[in-house]
């Protein structure tokens, strides 16, 4: 299978995420990479000209937000069997789209479906754009998705085009602070091993589709394990304003864990707080 990886308005973070996977070499082994701007000796223009002339391409990966006038990307999407948007810029537009309305993701502009390819875009193998959101996407999501396509297994995508195996659960799953969340014991300040970051410090773990706390970053850690709140970088509204604080109304987080009712939250958290074990509240 051959593959072209293009970069547009990007920090190259997803390329470096790919290189941070222990399986990166498997990708270079399994795919014939026709072009990647960080690695190729040939020029982008020449390679694309050849590929368009042939009219066949197995995989197109786009990293970075795209200008709506980018005909090259549109043309390549038309002939590619699979189109992958890697990273939240290519998926939603993200940072580069915030101050430029001509810039968007491949099939989305933030929440709105459409992007530069349009709502109904389907690649040759029958999939919409396969979206690997995240700023950047976790290394294993990139290698995992590519290798799965290679193995010809069917992809299960959610309504945003994201592979369910990586985006069906929440960043909250597997966080080492889960028990503190459960008993509503909040971290007293940043820089502490104990305590959950949901109530004060803006943690988006219970609202963010990702497997960052199950498929650990660089195989060893995650933001919340390292005491940093999850900023929800796999969702369209990243980066929201005031990222380190939880907005509250009358002492209740303005946004509750996905699917949890306000009534339910108040009841459960009241009970939890009342019966929270002392060992969770101690400083060390």
């Amino acid at each position: 299978m051959n593959l072209i990886w293009l970069q547009r308005l990007t920090c190259s973070g997803n390329t470096h995420s790919l290189l941070s996977s222990e399986d990166a070499n498997l990708v270079f082994e399994e795919f014939e990479v026709l072009f990647h701007p960080s690695f190729s000796v040939e020029s982008e223009e020449e390679v694309i000209k050849k590929v368009l002339k042939k009219g066949k391409l197995n995989i197109l990966v786009v990293e970075g937000a795209i200008n709506k006038e980018d005909d090259i990307v549109k043309k390549l999407c038309k002939i590619a069997d699979y189109v992958i948007a890697v990273g939240s810029c290519a998926v939603y537009g993200n940072l580069p789209a915030l101050k430029d309305k001509d810039v968007s993701g491949l099939q989305f502009r933030f929440k709105e479906k459409g992007g530069i390819l349009g709502k109904s875009f389907i690649s040759r193998k029958g999939y919409p754009v396969i979206n690997l959101s995240g700023c950047p996407a976790n290394p294993e999501w990139i290698t995992g998705t590519l290798l799965k396509i290679k193995s010809k297994r069917k992809l299960n995508l959610d309504e945003l085009g994201r592979p369910k195996e990586y985006y069906n659960s929440l960043a909250h799953w597997g966080c080492s602070r889960n028990e503190f969340f459960e008993w509503k014991v909040e971290a007293k300040s940043l820089g502490k091993e104990k305590g959950c970051l949901f109530y004060h410090f803006g943690c988006r773990g219970p609202l963010t589709h990702s497997t960052c706390n199950v498929i650990l970053w660089n195989g060893v850690n995650s933001k919340t394990r390292a005491g940093t709140p999850c900023f929800g970088c796999t969702e369209y509204d990243f980066p929201r304003e005031n990222l380190w604080e939880t907005k509250q109304y009358a002492g209740i987080p303005a946004e509750l864990p996905l699917g949890v009712s306000k009534r339910g939250y108040i009841m459960v958290s009241g009970m939890a707080k009342m019966f929270a074990p002392e060992r969770l509240k101690n400083e060390d």
Partner: peptide, 24 residues
């Protein structure tokens, strides 16, 4: 991995904050 051990992840960690770091 050296960065991730202390900073949570690489690329794009936010573990350094005014006054120190978030990790233990």
């Amino acid at each position: 991995k050296v960065i991730a051990l202390f900073a949570g992840q690489w690329p794009h960690s936010s573990y350094a904050i005014p006054g120190g770091i978030t990790s233990t």
